[in-house]
Computed example of a mutant assay.
Amino acid sequence: MTALGFLHPGHAAEDDYPRIEQLLGSDIRLTVVHTDLDEDPRSVEALRAMGSAQRLAAGVEELRLSGAEAVVWASASGSFVHGVQGAHEQVRGLAMAAGLPASSTAFAFAHAVREIGADRVAIGAALSDDVAGLFAEFLRETGTEVVAVHGSGAVTPAEVAGRDYGRVLALAREADHPDADAVLLPDTALHTAAHLTALEKDLAKPVLTAHQVTVWEALRLTDRRVNAPDLGTLFTREPIVQV
């Protein structure tokens, strides 16, 4: 049994985790602990506060008691808004507080892009253009070329979580670019676990989504490798990235 822990901001689309656990079809348990979320978490300032050391530390005891072997801050925007150096400091603080290997969804995307061999990517996010641009800057700092950035506007997590497959696909298509080797959808409020194979078929290229890469990152931290084609190209690649 491998137990993985996730600190998830607020309540939106976290039911993707039990779905992913089922699709993994292995002896893997995913435990989600919710962190506090401001009423309107869409500004850069609110996103930085969302991933504060105090808020993250508040959830680690429950994860330790669950037997988690690694913990991931399950927020891309709550990490990349700090820049690469700030995100590293955030993860180091989380690891020290939890006494466990730690990472974040932002770094999960950076590692997953390398895992699938994507040199150039396109980003589609239900974020304002300035926040989506910060994700592009983060990826560029980690060595990935970003050829397109599409921000569909800052909307509430509840609105994002309510999007059906047609709207998720529309976001991915609007973001896609002929030069992109993969499309990235960084919103943890977006339901994507049930759509990964359909998205990749419709776009004819790999698609990386927030919960997908977050779980993969936790597995990477524990040196687990799982082949799960229903979770997209990322879960069919070997070997796992070593960093």
Rank of each mutant, 00 (worst) to 15 (best):
M96H: 15
E45Q: 08
A70H: 04
G83C: 04
A97Q: 08
F80V: 10
G86S: 04
V91N: 12
H82K: 13
A95Y: 04
A57L: 07
L94P: 01
H88P: 01
G86L: 06
A95G: 15
E62F: 03
A49N: 11
E69I: 12
S52L: 06
G86E: 05
H88A: 14
S103D: 11
R92Q: 15
D36V: 14
H34S: 14
P101L: 05
G99W: 06
Q54R: 12
A46D: 10
A76H: 03
R64S: 14
M96V: 15
M96S: 15
A53M: 11
G51K: 01
G51W: 04
L94G: 01
A95E: 13
D36M: 08
F107T: 09
R48K: 09
E69D: 07
G93K: 00
A102L: 01
Q85H: 13
T35S: 05
S103K: 06
V91P: 07
Q85L: 10
S75V: 10
V44A: 03
A49V: 07
S104F: 09
A57H: 08
G99I: 09
G86I: 02
A95W: 05
Q85N: 13
S66Q: 03
E69F: 05
G99K: 03
L56F: 07
D40C: 08
S75L: 06
R42V: 14
R92D: 15
P41R: 01
T35P: 00
A108T: 14
D40E: 15
L47T: 05
G51V: 04
V60K: 00
G93W: 06
E89R: 08
W73T: 06
H88C: 11
V44Y: 03
V44M: 02
G99M: 09
V81Y: 00
D40Y: 10
R42N: 14
L63I: 10
A58Q: 07
L37D: 12
A68P: 04
V44F: 04
G67I: 02
T35N: 02
E45F: 07
V44S: 00
V33C: 01
S77V: 11
M50N: 01
Q90W: 11
R64E: 10
R64T: 14
D40I: 13
G51A: 09
S43G: 11
S52A: 13
V60E: 03
S79C: 08
A57G: 11
H88S: 12
L100H: 01
A97E: 11
S103G: 08
V91H: 02
A106T: 05
A74Y: 00
R48T: 13
S103V: 13
S43C: 11
M96K: 14
E89A: 10
R92A: 15
A97F: 10
A58V: 11
T35W: 01
G99F: 13
A46P: 08
G83I: 07
E39S: 13
A98P: 00
R55M: 03
F109M: 06
A97D: 10
M50P: 00
F109N: 02
L100I: 12
S52Y: 08
L65G: 09
E61S: 08
A87M: 02
A87H: 01
S77F: 10
L65A: 15
A46I: 12
E69S: 09
R92L: 15
E61H: 07
V33I: 14
V33A: 00
G99C: 13
A53Q: 12
L100S: 02
D36Y: 09
V84K: 03
